[in-house]
Design a protein around this nucleic acid. Structure first.
Lengths: 333, 333
DNA sequence: CTGTTAGCGCTTTCAA
DNA sequence: TTGAAAGCGCTAACAG
C-alpha cells in the first residue's frame, strides 16, 4: 500500500507538494501535478482516508442511524433500497457511511460524537423518541426521514398529495362513507396522512381508527371496523396509512364475510410487494425511494458544507389496483 | 471534546500511561488506572477512533458490502434485520461498520483496500460475480452470506434441511408428482435447495423449472407450469426456491384456473410478509436472521483476530400455512 | 510501574 | 511554486 511519501519520493517532490498536487490545489504547477498523478497511478496509490480524517477537521463521514429495526420489517424493502442508494451517492460525494444502531442506552448524539461523524442520516425516528430534544438542540447536520426537526433537513413523501389522490379516486368511484385507519401518536407521517384525509372528504363523515403501520395493527383496527359495521355503521371505504396495516384490515374484513372491494374498498400507502400480491391487490401510493435517498444525502452534505438545506417533499405515485371498487348498484341492496 | 492529553494532564500522568490505563493494560497500577478513569469519566472523554485507527494496525473497521440492491426488494425485509443486528453486534465487539456499495466499476477488493477495512461482510453475492476470483485470492477476512468461497466464512440457512421438511410434508399429504421451481445458475442457495429436493423425492419424478427468486421469475415459471399441465403432465405440487417466486407461480396458476392448493400445492422459502398475507397463505421455511447476522459477524471478527472460522449453517423453521393441501380424494376426479 | 520517544499518513501553515 | 515543519490523537517500543 503506497503512501504519499513514496509518491513524493518517486515523483521527486516533497510530501506537501505531492499532497497539494493530489488534491488539485491551485498553488502547484500543472507540470508537477501531472507528474505526481502519473506516479500515483502507477503505484496504485489511494489516499488513506483515516489519516486524512485525522488531520482534516472535516471527516467526510456520515452516520446512518437506523432506528426501530424491530418494526422495520414492515417496509424493509423500502429501507434497503434507500440504504443502497445513500451509500452509492455518498461514495460519489466522497463521504463514507458508518452504520449505527443504538445499543446500551447510549443517546444518539453520544454515538455521533463517539464516532466523530460530521453528520447524521436518521431512519425510523418517531415523535415519541426520547432523544428528540437532544437532536433538536444539537448543532450536528442531519437529514431525517419522515419527521421534521427544526434546524435539520427533513425528507418525506408528499403524504398529503398521496392521500388526496386516494380520496379523489374513492369519491369518483362513488364512495361516501370513508374512514381512516392508522393514526398513531408516534408517527408524524400518520398525522399528515390523516389530516389530508380529513380535509379531502366531504361531507365530513369522519371516522378514524387508531393504530400503527404493522400487519398486527391492521388486524386490530380491522376488528374494530367489523364491529362498527355489525352495529349498523355504514362504511364504504377505509383509507389506511400504510400497506401492511391495510392488509391486516382486509384480512379481518374478509374473515368476517365482508368483501373487499365488493362491500368495502381499502387503500394503503407505501407500495410494498406484499400489497401487490395480496388478494385483492392493494391500491396504494408508492414512494420514490431513489429520490428520497438522494434528498436525504444531499440534505446532510449541504448542511455539512455550510449551505442551508430546506426540507424536501418527494412526490409519490398513486398505484391503482383491485382493492378499491365502484359503488355502482350497491345502494340497492 | 477532551483528548487523551488533557486526561493525562488532569490525572497527573503521562499520555502513554493514560493510554495504557484507559486500555486496561497490565503494566499500570490499579491506583493509577482508577484515577485516570475517573478523570476520563469526569471530562466525558471518548477515545477518537480515527486516531486510534491510524496508529494501530487493527482498524476495527468492517466493510458491509451490499450487492444487488436492485434485486434485493425480494427479501429486503430480511436484509434490513440482518443489517441492524450486524451493526449492533459489531458495536458490542468494538467494531465500526462501513456501508459499501459498488460503483464506478471499482472491484470489491479495491473498495476494501481504499477504505482500509480489516474485514468484509458480503450480502447478495452470486456465483456469476466477476469479483469471485479476486475474492478467493484475497487474504482479507470475510463473512459471506449464502455463498461458499474458500478460505472465507460462509453463513447460510440449512437449505437442505428446510427443503427436506417441505418435501416430507408434501409426501405426508399424499403428493407424488412434485416439481421444483427456481433453479438458477447464479445462486448457490438455489442449487442447494434443488439438490435437497432431488434427493428427497421418491419415486424420482423430477421436474425442474429454471428461474430466479423474484416475483417476475415466478410468473415466468408459473406460465411454463401451466403449459405443462395443459399438455397433460400431472403435477401435484411445486416446491419453489423462494417466497416471491412461489407467489408468482401461484398467481399464474390461479390465473389459469388451477386452484392452489386444491389442484396444486406450492411452497416457498424465506418466510416473507408477502407470503403470509397472500391467498392462500404460503407454506415456507423461515430463516433465522438474528442467528445469521451474528454468525456473519462472528465469522469475520474471528478471522480478523486470527482464530479460524468454519462455515456456519443456521437452522430454519418450517412454517406450515395454507398453500399446501392434502391430495385426499383428488385421484377420484 | 511510568515516561520518553517515535511514529501512523495526511493536511496545512509559513518560509524560502 | 515548492518544501520544511508542525500537528491531528493515539499506540507501542523501549528505557528508566
Amino acid at each position: 500500500m503506497a503512501s504519499i511519501r513514496e509518491i513524493a519520493k518517486e515523483a521527486g517532490v516533497s510530501v506537501s507538494t505531492a499532497s497539494k498536487a493530489l488534491n488539485n490545489k491551485k498553488d502547484v504547477s500543472e507540470g508537477t501535478k501531472a507528474r505526481v498523478r502519473e506516479v500515483a497511478d502507477k503505484l496504485g496509490y489511494t489516499p488513506n482516508p483515516i489519516a486524512r480524517r485525522l488531520s482534516a477537521r472535516r471527516k467526510n463521514l456520515i452516520g446512518l442511524l437506523i432506528l426501530h429495526t424491530e418494526t422495520l420489517e414492515i417496509d424493509g424493502s423500502i429501507f434497503i433500497k434507500i440504504l443502497g442508494e445513500i451509500s452509492r451517492e455518498a461514495a460519489v460525494k466522497g463521504y463514507d457511511v458508518l452504520l449505527m444502531t443504538p445499543a446500551g442506552g447510549e443517546s444518539y448524539m453520544e454515538m455521533a460524537r463517539r464516532s466523530r461523524v460530521d453528520g447524521l442520516i436518521i431512519l425510523g425516528l418517531t415523535l415519541e423518541d426520547k432523544n428528540l430534544d437532544e437532536l433538536k438542540r444539537a448543532e450536528l447536520p442531519m437529514g431525517i426521514l419522515d419527521q421534521r426537526v427544526e434546524g435539520k433537513c427533513c425528507v418525506t413523501t408528499d403524504n398529503r398529495g398521496g392521500i388526496e389522490e386516494v380520496v379523489k379516486l374513492l369519491k369518483e368511484k362513488g364512495h361516501k362513507e370513508i374512514s381512516f385507519a392508522g393514526w398513531c401518536d408516534s408517527s408524524q407521517v400518520s398525522h399528515e396522512r390523516y389530516d389530508a384525509y380529513l380535509e379531502s372528504i366531504s361531507p365530513k363523515t369522519e371516522r378514524v381508527y387508531r393504530g400503527g403501520f404493522s400487519y398486527e395493527d391492521g388486524l386490530a383496527m380491522g376488528r374494530e371496523i367489523v364491529e362498527d359495521i355489525r352495529s349498523g355503521r355504514s362504511i364504504d371505504a377505509v383509507v389506511c396509512s400504510a400497506d401492511m396495516a391495510a392488509l391486516g384490515v382486509i384480512k379481518e374484513l374478509q374473515g368476517a364475510g365482508i368483501e373487499v372491494p365488493g362491500d368495502v374498498s381499502v387503500s394503503g400507502f407505501d407500495n410494498l410487494m406484499a400489497g401487490r400480491v395480496a388478494s385483492p391487490s392493494l391500491t396504494t401510493v408508492s414512494q420514490d425511494t431513489l429520490e428520497i435517498s438522494r434528498a436525504l444525502l444531499q440534505g446532510v452534505t449541504d448542511l455539512i458544507e455550510g449551505k442551508g438545506a430546506g426540507d424536501r417533499v418527494i412526490t409519490g405515485e398513486l398505484i391503482v389496483r383491485d382493492s378499491i371498487g365502484g359503488r355502482n348498484g350497491k345502494d340497492q341492496k
